[in-house]
Amino acid sequence: MVKEIERAGIPVVHVCTVTPISMTVGANRIVPAIAIPHPLGNPNLDHEEEFKLRRKLVEKALKALETEVDGQTVFEG
């Protein structure tokens, strides 16, 4: 899916847990997520903490979209 969006000419960031699959399917901007059943959340945190965590991840995704890449890049850390 990610490749088809890219092919249409729209920059896309793939937020996913299993980054190796993302690499295999050919995403170019990849942001590692938390876990498969809750990629942008962590049910062990309280609501406010969890929201902060999610905001950080989304900010990282936006950062990735603002970053020029010349090949497949995983935005770690």
Binding site: T17, T19, P20, P32, A35
Partner: peptide, 10 residues
């Protein structure tokens, strides 16, 4: 071995 939902576990 297992097949967990976290990449670090994998």
């Amino acid at each position: 071995t297992n097949e967990n939902v976290f990449l670090a576990d994998k």
